[in-house]
Design a binder for these strands. Sequence first.
DNA 1: CTTGGCACTCGGCCGGCGAGAGTGCTAATG
DNA 2: CATTAGCACTCTCGCCGGCCGAGTGCCAAG
Lengths: 351, 351
Amino acid sequence: MAAKRSNLTLDDRSRRLLKALVERFIHDAQPVGSRTLSRDSGLELSPATVRNVMSDLEEMGLVAAPHTSAGRVPTVKGYRLFIDTLLKVQPLSRVEVEQLRENLQTGEEFNPQSIISTASSLLSGITNMAGVVTLPRRDHSEIRHLEFVPLSEGRVLAILVFSDHEVQNRILHVEREYSPSELQQASNYLSSLFAGRGLMDVRQRLLGELSRTREDMNETMRAAVEMAGKVFSNSEEEDYVMAGQVNLMSFKELSDVDKLRQLFEAFTTKRDILHLLDQCVSADGVQIFIGEESGYKVLDECSVVTAPYEIDDHVVGVLGVIGPTRMAYDRVIPIVDVTARLLGAALNSRE
Amino acid sequence: MAAKRSNLTLDDRSRRLLKALVERFIHDAQPVGSRTLSRDSGLELSPATVRNVMSDLEEMGLVAAPHTSAGRVPTVKGYRLFIDTLLKVQPLSRVEVEQLRENLQTGEEFNPQSIISTASSLLSGITNMAGVVTLPRRDHSEIRHLEFVPLSEGRVLAILVFSDHEVQNRILHVEREYSPSELQQASNYLSSLFAGRGLMDVRQRLLGELSRTREDMNETMRAAVEMAGKVFSNSEEEDYVMAGQVNLMSFKELSDVDKLRQLFEAFTTKRDILHLLDQCVSADGVQIFIGEESGYKVLDECSVVTAPYEIDDHVVGVLGVIGPTRMAYDRVIPIVDVTARLLGAALNSRE
DNA sequence: CTTGGCACTCGGCCGGCGAGAGTGCTAATG
DNA sequence: CATTAGCACTCTCGCCGGCCGAGTGCCAAG
């Protein structure tokens, strides 16, 4: 008895029971009792025995009873153990993978923005939960083109084209008016200087260029460098695209309107969610936060499954799924995993 | 008696009572009874008399009783009458208007997109309901600049700058490769042709240009016209920006999670809402849909208050507020009205 | 260690009850 | 004849008690 309870050393029978319990609970969202468990655990055990085991599991903090005479429910710790050691992931079928790939390779319009948002929609659509994808960090994206267009009164529009066809517009404030031809020159000069280089590289190079504003540079070149400085100083703020929030309203664990409101507020505020997602870029593969583990109380009843995605072998962002703690991890995990890979591939494909 | 009931001819007393009832109900969301009404209608009437009047109003379909022994509640027809003939709008104070104006004139970054979304946030923030602003139609916006940037493999990036600093990017598919200088030429040619002209004007002109592809045009010019054709054929799809949906979750008339879900689905689908908003561009000033009047059953419990906004004396979009039928119309109406004017002004200000 | 048996404990589901709020009707009043 | 007071009636809501079913904990037997 004392031996069995010795931390984390769980005999096979208990583990199978826990597994059965979690699976059952995930399936029908109700506390599961000893009778049910003794039936479909696969083991030949009477309800009474199951009760004893349950009692042990409860003492270990793996399951909990909502009230005296309800069945048991997994705790966060229980889910954790389940996911880490008991879960058998269901790999996606070839067909499913192909469908995902097709949907992401929209063919015609190659537009990173829209690929990102289809990814988000796909995640939410397949899982019936909320999908989220952070916009890729562009530190390592190569620059294809830099162009300036004159606007009125000391404003210049800078257009930045990356090699993956992402286009960014920024408006600069400059001291004097520049003629179109001047801007043209500047644009040519900078494009030749930066084309094919990564953003981080460019920033560094620019720093050097700015410091030694040599006399052999003509006025236009100096202006060009200065404007470039403004363009690239703009550290872009992080952001994410979310889809399928409404799906979360169907779960009865979130039927409390007030809880729901707080959750949705967190989604629109974005700050906390971004923080959380940021933690996942460093992680190697799929990462899972169960309930309170995330550290944000609005997510107490939710789990978050994430995976980083890569462009050119650099991790540039994270995608994932947000849903109730009680989610089909065996399906969700591979979905998130595969989608991350496919998104990376899709964003790479026209290098 | 018969005389009193004669359609729509409501004696002064009944009207004041109806007014009091609606105001009271808007204020505290509960059916209001004869006792309360006789107290704060301002008239010296006993509850019994009030009851008689209520009975008449009910027969006319202006109020309804949720059940036998509850007070009365305004019907849609009742609200309509209230708004059309009884409501005394509360004009905004000078300070409030100034605050709105300041918030919209973000000074620094003049960016239509961000102005639109602050407008939406302001609407939702002040009213504690959901704010919505359609993106401006650009039919009459003047074009300031048109630029082409070569991308890989038969793709050209077209950049379209409007006089209000709105920038749009479109990717074109072209048959052959164009050299940067060719594109430069094309861009110059088209800019000179179109700069300062409205989009509709440009479209028309382009049609003529396309039809008579004369021999005196060189190859580059022909290509330019062709590409321009592609740029301007893209009829941009309509869209809107919404803010403060979460606010709607606090209203107890929308506390049913399922109703709420349908409402939010309509918000993300956008189609129906866009349809509804479209109907308001033609309207002259503030327009109000009460409950079922909108024709969309998800909005049955909601009212929508809208006003079109103008740039350069052309109506280009609509903004408004969505909330429960029971909203403080006397405040919301002027807010929507003023915001529409201010948004127009803000988008105009740097012609 | 496992199991069957048994008492016990909860939550959920009526059905009844009383209070409160508000109505409709009628008869009295100015 | 409109207004009012009075009164019976209706309906909601919250509360209590009882009952059922599900499930537990414990104990004693296998």
